[in-house]
Each structure stands twice: as structure tokens, then as C-alpha cells.
């Protein structure tokens, strides 16, 4: 199902190529307008996925990014790295590997010191309408739909916790609007998901194998062409009954140029696997074109 969808999305992107364009152009977008890379590998903020397509390509070209992300929490460490391509500012395909390292906490949880939950996230996003930047004379945002296939590696532990599956699919619709006259960037996303801690702790829980719709939102202010500062919120399901909290962050995304950007945030992930107050520094580096 996932790959069929991706193929469909890719075909839609290719058909959107202007017939007149003989050459594939790169770096045509304005600074920061491809967003940065989220923990799940999609273009967006840090925790929230946006409707923008990764890379600096316009509809006449292609772009791509690689990213590496680290979140240092009191009792855990989260890492992610991956890559994404943007096709004709229409389709985004992404692949990211996440690691949730329990470090010393693993022993306290009975999992063993340094026990690390990992998962792969394969994403596809299709921009379906609007333009976040150009259409400043209307409230209509840029809207994209997307899918993320997630495959977690610790099936045995997930089963012991009560998780129903070690893989799952999130489906989302994202709306992004730049209010240029106010130098504001706004985003709202609805995500249908079964994922526990984005999927690292599996999908579904005891008696809770249905999809629920979660919200993720970002609001940022452009302080310069290179610098966006803002805050994010992401609601989370609680299917395992282990107390899974909503996520918050305040972030600053800085584009050194169109090839390199740095995002720093202070993220509050709440309680994770019974350990409360998981707040810490989020740092993400992105390189691409």
C-alpha cells in the first residue's frame, strides 16, 4: 500500500513538470522556504511536519537534504538521521532512522544499560493546493497530504508493553501559511496515528488498536531572511497506558545558506516510558540543496 502510494505521488510530481522547462533547476526557492527536517524526516519544524516540500527546488527542479538530529534528555538520548528528496516542489520522499537510547535508564527499566529502541520512517508527501509564500492576498494556505510508514525494531519489548504492532502507518494533512506582512509562519497538521512515542514503542495498545487524530502546530516569526524562531506543540495518543505526554518546543532555525542550516530547540517531551520531565536541548543539522 505504501509503495503504491509513493509511486502515485511521484507520478503526480512528474506530470507537474512544465513541458517547456528543458533543464532541471536547483536552488530556486527563497531561503528557509523549504523548512527544516523534523524528527520523522519530513520537511517541517522540529517536531511538527509542515506542508512545505524539502529542498530548495522550485516546480522547475529537484532538491534534497540530509539531516542529523540529537535530543539530549535527562534520562534518554534521541538521535535521528536520514535523507529526503523534493521533486518539483510537489512531492517529497524521505527516509530516516531514529534511535532512542535508554542509556543508564535501560537498567532501571529492566531492559539493560544502553538498550536502544530504533525505527525506520519512510515518508511521502504530496503538495495538493495553495502556495504558502506567493498567495499573500488570500488566507488559503499551502496544503499537503502525507504518509509515514514506520517500522520499529524491538518487537519483543513492544509486545511485553502491550503494543499491538511493531510497524504502522501515519497519515496526515498539513497546512502551512506564511503571513509575510507580519513576518509570521503558521502551520497546523492533523495526523491519524496509532504510534506510541512516534512508533519507537510500537503501535496500538491493550484494547486501543484504533487510529486517533492528533494535532501538531507551529508558529514562528521570521527575524531575518536566515532566522526563524518559534514554538511547536504536538499532541500524542496514549495507547499503552504508560502516560504519554504531548510535546512542546521552542526553536530557532538558522539558514547559513541554501546548503546548510542549523536548528536548535528546547524540547519538552514530558514523560517517556515512566520517566518524567524529559526536557532538553534539541539540535539538528541539515545539509543539501
Amino acid at each position: 500500500m505504501t509503495w503504491g502510494w509513493i509511486a502515485l505521488a511521484a507520478a503526480a510530481g512528474l506530470s507537474a513538470t512544465p513541458a517547456a522547462a528543458q533543464e532541471v533547476r536547483t536552488l530556486g526557492k527563497l531561503l528557509l522556504t523549504g523548512g527544516v527536517t523534523t524528527v520523522e524526516g519530513s520537511a517541517g519544524g522540529g517536531l511538527a511536519t509542515w506542508a512545505v516540500v524539502t529542498g530548495y527546488e522550485t516546480r522547475e527542479g529537484i532538491g534534497a537534504n540530509a539531516h542529523a538530529t540529537l535530543v539530549e534528555l535527562p534520562d534518554y538520548q534521541f538521535r535521528a538521521h536520514g535523507a529526503a528528496v523534493g521533486l518539483y516542489d510537489r512531492v517529497e520522499l524521505s527516509y530516516t532512522r531514529q534511535a532512542f537510547d535508554t542509556r543508564g535508564t535501560g537498567a532501571k527499566l529492566g531492559l539493560g544499560k544502553g538498550f536502544t529502541f530504533r525505527q525506520e520512517v519512510v515518508g511521502a508527501k504530496l503538495r495538493v493546493l495553495g502556495d504558502a509564500i506567493y498567495n499573500q492576498d488570500t488566507w488559503v494556505p499551502q496544503v499537503a497530504v502525507g504518509v509515514q510508514y514506520k517500522n520499529a525494531d524491538k518487537a519483543a519489548v513492544i509486545g511485553l508493553l502491550g503494543g499491538q504492532d511493531d510497524d504502522g502507518v501515519d497519515v496526515y494533512v498539513a497546512a502551512t501559511k506564511v503571513l509575510l506582512a507580519e513576518s509570521l509562519v503558521l502551520n497546523g497538521t492533523l495526523r491519524a496515528t496509532k504510534a506510541n512515542q512516534t512508533g519507537l514503542l510500537g503501535f496500538g495498545g491493550p484494547g486501543a488498536d484504533d487510529y486517533t487524530v492528533q494535532f501538531e502546530g507551529s508558529a514562528g516569526m521570521l527575524l531575518s531572511k536566515r532566522l526563524l524562531v518559534g514554538a511547536e506543540y504536538r499532541s500524542k495518543p496514549n495507547k499503552l497506558g504508560l502516560q504519554e505526554d504531548d510535546w512542546f518546543d521552542v526553536f530557532a532555525a538558522y539558514a547559513v545558506n541554501k546548503n546548510f542550516s542549523v536548528t536548535a530547540a528546547y524540547a519538552d517531551l514530558g514523560t517517556v516510558a515512566t520517566f518524567k520531565g524529559q526536557r532538553g536541548l534539541y539540535l539538528s543539522l541539515q545539509a543539501g540543496f
Binding site: 522547462a21 533547476r25 530556486g28 526557492k29 527542479g61
Partner: peptide, 9 residues
Amino acid sequence: GVQNADFNA
């Protein structure tokens, strides 16, 4: 023949 990349430039 103006393209988005030209507009942005």
C-alpha cells in the same frame, strides 16, 4: 518564460 526560480531570484 519567467519561472518561479526567476521570480525568486
